[in-house]
């Protein structure tokens, strides 16, 4: 007998099937992968190209989220303005929207036949849709909300007295933001960046709709997995295992900080 207050009976009985539903597919992939060819699979020309492309685009999407998301999150957390709740809902919308819908929306906003996309093409010869930039934008669209939600919660938790103290001792608003506020939210910032990057790395629906699935150009790892699965290769499983390892590494590496961030934020 454990010497502690008793839990409702049978919780484990109900929880375990739920865990199994999540764990079994992951185990199945790990189980079925041909490890003799694992290294050959992930270092094959097509896999390597997809991996490098994924790495590059997901890092760029994360940097964009960091640059644009940080000020936005600060404003949402610290300023009362008209339409704040609506703006927050808009920022979070991509989290609940099917990513493929996001991709279609991006296509209609920046595709060649849209006013913006058309103007970019006519005036500057810039085409966004079905390019690497489109892959970055698609990942940004889907992943940035994770960063904004985490950072808004973090900025809300900042002790305003410490920020105020910095101001009374002569630091202006920017200096206070850069040297005090950012230091106070650093754990959340790291967790937010990691979550956003992991989400960007795994992005599929918005990318395939807005950037397409061109090997070597817009075919990121999730798209490569999908394509290679259709052609029945081992490479799909090997890449899947790699994605699982990377995602787990991110979550385990940050387990304490991101769990506390999500708890605090109630997000």
């Amino acid at each position: 007998m454990k010497r502690q207050i008793s839990a409702p009976r049978g919780l484990w009985f109900i929880a375990v099937p739920g865990i199994a539903l999540v764990v079994m597919p992951v185990l199945a992939v790990v189980w079925r992968t041909n490890y003799a060819n694992f290294w050959t699979s992930i270092s094959s020309e097509s896999s390597r190209v997809a991996l490098l492309l994924s790495l590059r685009t997901s890092i760029m999407a994360t940097v964009l989220a960091l640059i644009f998301g940080t000020p936005l999150a600060w404003l949402l957390a610290n300023r009362q303005f008209r339409g704040r709740l609506f703006l927050r809902a808009l920022c979070v919308l991509p989290m609940v929207l099917p990513p493929v819908v996001g991709g279609v929306a991006l296509l209609f906003a920046f595709g060649r036949r849209s006013p913006i996309g058309g103007a970019l093409d006519d005036w500057f010869g810039i085409q966004l849709a079905f390019t690497q930039t489109a892959a970055v934008l698609a990942q940004f669209f889907v992943a940035a909300p994770f960063f904004i939600v985490v950072m808004e919660a973090a900025f809300e938790q900042v002790d305003q007295r410490i920020v105020g103290t910095a101001r009374t001792f002569g630091a202006g608003p920017w200096r206070t933001f850069l040297t005090v506020t950012l230091a106070l939210v650093r754990p959340s910032l790291i967790a937010g960046v990691a979550l956003t990057w992991a989400r960007a790395l795994g992005e599929f629906g918005a990318t395939i709709a807005f950037a397409g699935n061109t090997p070597g150009k817009t075919q990121t790892v999730p798209l490569a997995v999908y394509s290679q699965l259709e052609s029945g290769g081992d490479d799909a499983l090997a890449l899947s295992v790699l994605m699982i390892i990377v995602s787990l590494a991110v979550l385990i590496g940050l387990r304490s900080s991101w769990i506390s961030v999500l708890k605090r934020g109630g997000a």
Binding site: I162, G164, T165, A166, T168, G170, G172, A183
Partner: peptide
């Protein structure tokens, strides 16, 4: 007038120190 231009020094409850410095 913004706080940084007032020439007011403060000691708030709990000290309000910058723990990262």
């Amino acid at each position: 007038l913004q706080p940084e231009f007032r020439g007011v020094s403060t000691v708030f409850q709990g000290g309000s120190l910058f723990n990262h410095l």
